[in-house]
Simulated scan of single mutants.
Amino acid sequence: MYKISEFAKMSGLPQSKVRFYEKNGLLKVRKDINGYRYFTRWDAFRVNAFRVLLQYGFTVEKAISMLDERQSGELFVNSLEDKKEELQKQIDLMHSRMKKLEAVISLLKEGYENKFEIVDMEDYLYVLASNGIDFGISVENGNVIAQFAELLSITSYARIIMMDELLNRNVTINPSYASAIPISREHLLGKYDKSKVKKLKLGKCIRYYRNETREGSEKLDSFNELFNFLEKNNYKINGDVLLLPTFLNLDGKGIDIEVLYVPIKN
């Protein structure tokens, strides 16, 4: 038997950590006839097994529950494979976040060479948080919106501008707010309610960098540069537009930088 001070030294755990793990069920509280805590070598083995699970990335709660369950080799492999999949998703998120950071840093430091470029874009999937300025649909779509939000950096908070609104030349444009993901990354969502998700066909697009104030961004005349470029090059809008905020002035008073992907045909 080992007193808490001895067990702390042999396990490399501070006494406060020993008490924490007692409280959370990793270690069982045992007391001698004088009321002092004591531990055994089996507790040390349990701590070592627990640390191995932490090395694999399991949470404290999950690791303790795994120690308390009857684990066959097959079940343990399944747990490790699930953890591997989870970690790979986190790695993908970090890589995507790094790319976005590098892109916006470059944009803010160096600007962009061409305001308009022709690019080939893969299709996107999106779930609506609003229809224009009506956010009522977000209640209906809440669970799927949350799934998209968990993948933030692979997914994007976007706005969808309906082609008809641009073609009808309304005085104001009312984009719908959405969460969007490239269709090639759909597998990262896992299972979701596909009835809540729409597909945005892009293909050949104008990538249009736009600088605009928050207040002016939804006025039709803020798209005049785009209309002029379309007319000059004999392009026609061929679908709904994906708008991705790139830099937002936090006080809302300066100029925001947005990138728009406008599907086109000749």
Rank of each mutant, 00 (worst) to 15 (best):
residue 199 K to N: 03
residue 120 D to H: 07
residue 214 R to Y: 06
residue 183 I to C: 10
residue 108 L to G: 08
residue 97 R to H: 03
residue 266 N to Q: 13
residue 149 A to P: 04
residue 244 L to I: 15
residue 8 A to W: 09
residue 166 L to D: 12
residue 104 V to H: 07
residue 41 R to P: 09
residue 13 L to W: 13
residue 233 N to V: 04
residue 157 Y to N: 12
residue 41 R to K: 00
residue 47 V to R: 06
residue 173 I to A: 06
residue 14 P to A: 15
residue 216 G to E: 13
residue 242 L to C: 12
residue 145 I to N: 12
residue 148 F to Q: 02
residue 161 I to D: 14
residue 51 R to I: 01
residue 152 L to G: 04
residue 110 E to H: 13
residue 47 V to Y: 05
residue 75 L to V: 13
residue 142 G to A: 11
residue 170 N to D: 02
residue 5 S to N: 13
residue 246 T to A: 02
residue 99 K to A: 14
residue 62 K to V: 10
residue 252 G to D: 04
residue 196 K to M: 00
residue 222 S to I: 00
residue 185 R to L: 04
residue 22 E to G: 01
residue 152 L to D: 10
residue 108 L to I: 15
residue 96 S to P: 05
residue 109 K to A: 13
residue 74 E to S: 11
residue 124 Y to F: 03
residue 203 G to K: 03
residue 237 I to K: 10
residue 80 L to N: 07
residue 261 Y to R: 07
residue 192 Y to G: 11
residue 43 D to R: 00
residue 233 N to S: 08
residue 223 F to S: 00
residue 239 G to T: 00
residue 247 F to Q: 04
residue 26 L to P: 12
residue 106 S to C: 10
residue 38 Y to T: 03
residue 78 N to M: 11
residue 257 I to M: 07
residue 242 L to K: 10
residue 130 S to W: 02
residue 148 F to V: 01
residue 185 R to H: 09
residue 148 F to G: 14
residue 220 L to R: 12
residue 240 D to Y: 00
residue 22 E to C: 00
residue 52 V to I: 12
residue 49 A to D: 10
residue 249 N to T: 13
residue 254 G to K: 12
residue 251 D to K: 03
residue 236 K to T: 09
residue 1 M to K: 07
residue 49 A to R: 08
residue 88 Q to F: 04
residue 240 D to N: 15
residue 102 E to V: 08
residue 266 N to P: 08
residue 255 I to Q: 06
residue 100 K to Y: 05
residue 190 G to K: 10
residue 15 Q to N: 12
residue 30 R to T: 08
residue 124 Y to V: 04
residue 111 G to S: 08
residue 249 N to D: 14
residue 248 L to Q: 13
residue 59 T to Q: 05
residue 135 F to S: 06
residue 259 V to K: 09
residue 127 V to F: 02
residue 103 A to W: 02
residue 184 S to H: 00
residue 84 K to I: 02
residue 53 L to M: 12
residue 20 F to D: 11
residue 200 L to C: 12
residue 73 G to I: 11
residue 99 K to L: 07
residue 89 K to F: 05
residue 175 P to A: 03
residue 257 I to Q: 09
residue 168 N to M: 14
residue 10 M to W: 06
residue 206 I to T: 09
residue 41 R to Y: 05
residue 125 L to G: 05
residue 61 E to Q: 03
residue 250 L to Q: 11
residue 179 S to Q: 14
residue 244 L to A: 05
residue 113 E to P: 04
residue 156 S to Q: 14
residue 77 V to C: 07
residue 18 V to C: 14
residue 177 Y to E: 14
residue 164 D to F: 08
residue 34 N to G: 09
residue 107 L to A: 12
residue 149 A to D: 14
residue 3 K to H: 15
residue 47 V to N: 04
residue 255 I to W: 00
residue 115 K to V: 04
residue 73 G to Y: 01
residue 191 K to Y: 03
residue 246 T to I: 00
residue 254 G to L: 09
residue 233 N to C: 04
residue 2 Y to N: 07
residue 176 S to I: 01
residue 59 T to C: 05
residue 148 F to E: 11
residue 49 A to G: 13
residue 42 W to A: 09
